[in-house]
């Protein structure tokens, strides 16, 4: 493998990896406040991209993206209000089935609205042949945008949960729901907020990745399973570790092309998922004891 190819694989891996990390963080945010794994997480990414593409036909890029993210957040919030909020301590099995159902419905709605064709947003800077020279290979500026925007999001979320009072309230609900209620926090609102937040970051990721990876109505499940793999790799609920795990998975996947047929690329993440669930369900980085201490 020459260094040009190496760099290309590396950057492709980083791009996908950071997206997986964002999906994983989306899982974590909802998991931390509710104990639910939202199987419809990948659909938020799809919605963000698809809505932005439709809006972009009528307005410039930036407002289209901002509006798309806000709309997706609203959808996330509404989903929580209509399907989750009023359930009295539902069983895990019930929640799994409901979120799977939501994922199917969202996907089918997208199919009927946008059809099954592959769409994409234009490159934010320049076009598909614009590139920046890095070492010996040429990399699209969009790649840097994806990595940059996602990194900023991760940092901002981390600050939000650490320093803002709202973020602290959400963490309080995650740590001890009843104690949070006694402190005057309404945990239900926090859950709605966590759905909006995770829909929002998913939508942002869906927009910035769209020019490179394209958007399609059925992109959600595969993103969700990879995001979940990453979330588990990092230890469910641990978002900083999820970033590291995301990058790791992205890079493993992109380098796997040189050894495995493309058709099996998707099976890699799944195999890793099974392996990690069998061997270390508390994640690569965390100890089993630390896995119980939820933070962010």
């Amino acid at each position: 493998m020459n260094s040009t190819l190496f760099c290309q694989y590396l950057f492709a891996g980083l791009t996908y990896g950071i997206i997986y990390a964002i999906v994983a963080i989306g899982f974590n945010i909802i998991y931390n406040t509710t104990g639910i794994i939202n199987f419809a997480q990948g659909e938020f990414v799809m919605l963000g991209g698809m809505i932005a593409i439709s809006l972009h036909a009528h307005m410039p890029l930036l407002p289209a993206i901002v509006l798309a993210v806000l709309l997706t957040m609203a959808i996330g919030g509404l989903i929580e209000i209509f399907f989750i909020r009023w359930l009295q301590s539902p069983s895990v099995l019930r929640m799994i089935i409901i979120t799977i159902g939501l994922s199917i419905l969202t996907r089918e709605a997208a199919l009927h609205i946008w059809g099954s064709s592959v769409r994409s947003l234009p490159y934010f800077i320049g076009n598909e042949i614009t590139s920046i020279k890095v070492f010996s290979s040429r990399v699209s500026p969009q790649v840097f945008l994806v990595v940059g925007v996602c990194s900023v999001m991760v940092a901002a979320l981390s600050l939000f949960f650490k320093y803002s009072s709202l973020g602290r309230e959400m963490r309080a609900c995650a740590a001890n729901r009843r104690a949070a209620i006694l402190c005057g926090i309404n945990p239900r609102n926090m859950v709605t907020l966590s759905f909006m937040l995770s829909a929002g970051i998913g939508a942002v990721a869906g927009c910035v990745m769209s020019p490179i990876t394209y958007s399609q109505y059925d992109m959600g499940p595969s993103l969700a399973i990879k995001g979940f793999t990453v979330a588990i790799l990092g230890g469910l609920g641990n978002s900083m570790a999820a970033v590291a795990a995301g990058l790791l998975l992205g890079i493993i996947e992109s380098f796997s092309i040189s050894v495995l047929p493309l058709a099996f690329q998707d099976a890699i993440a799944t195999s890793i998922l099974l392996l990690i669930l069998f061997v270390r369900p508390h994640g690569l980085f965390g100890s089993s004891a630390a896995a119980r201490l939820k933070d962010f």
Partner: peptide, 18 residues
Amino acid sequence: KGHYLAMATLGFGIIIFR
């Protein structure tokens, strides 16, 4: 258990599909 079991069986299904 729970989500982990659901995801593991889902993962198995995906691997067979692939």
